[in-house]
Design a protein around this nucleic acid. Sequence first.
DNA 1: AAGTGCCTCAACCGCGTACCC
DNA 2: GGGGTACGCGGTTGAGGCACT
Length: 292
Amino acid sequence: MGRRPCCSKEGLNRGAWTALEDRILKEYIQINGEGGWRNLPIEAGLKRCGKSCRLRWLNYLRPDIKRGNISEEEEELIIRLHKLLGNRWSLIAGRLPGRTDNEIKNHWNTNLSKKFQTHSTSKRTHKQSTLSKEKRILINPTPPARLPPPVPTFESRVIRTKATRCTKVFFTPEDPAAVNEFVKEIAPEFDGLLSDFMADLDVGGLCLSEFLHSDFSDPCRFNDNNAIRLDGNSDNNNDLYPPILSDDPLLFHGKNIEQYWTEVDCIQRDDAKFDLQSLATFLNAEEDWLGE
DNA sequence: AAGTGCCTCAACCGCGTACCC
DNA sequence: GGGGTACGCGGTTGAGGCACT
């Protein structure tokens, strides 16, 4: 019983790839492009599972793979992103050009998690440690740096599964009055959404899913205030993201937004603060996950 | 030199989601 | 809407290399 295997394992090569297999796969993809992984081995003449081909290409053969050790700057970014996003390696890898999720995951498990263990004073066991049972280690639970006073309490439930990005969030306001105040003063976008609802995290014009998937490497995506541009067109302020409000632009204090996102734990618009550390907290709030 | 234990990282596995019919 | 398939993801494994005895 159980799940049907992704492909027949009979007669397929397993284990380390040979130089010849690499060459065949590379040449096939260069000619035919990525995708169609299931049929690729047959068409390319490889005795490999399609999944294996995909993994080999993504983690090793892609031309834009960056070789060599992970730099201190990259390491710093990984730590910050992990603090914010948890074990969403693919998302983290997306912020490190040339690095793969597998590479970052391995680097974390073999190097960075130890640093956390060394520096952590916490006794909390990380639920999702990927190390083998006897090697499981303690990881800093990243307590929120500070709580934003004007933001009301939400019972947040992150829709998060084992292998998916987190873009949707359920909010259940615990204090409707506080939410009213919050909406009125800080996030008019929430107007009319006071009961249980499902939406992109969209606070003050800063949409989580857009934010996480933005191309931070493209300078055209930022205006003079370093707000993200949706279309990369520097001439149209209406397409800025977060939107430029009249006399009230969402400022990033002159910093590159990536720098800001990873260095600063709070984005500020006037005196309204939405705390990214709090975001990290609920992203990591495993007790609130669905599926319990 | 041989044995042992530890570490690294490429590869595998199973699951959830997206997509198509 | 339901079922089947493909893809992408995070967790886990294990081969190979290295250090130490």
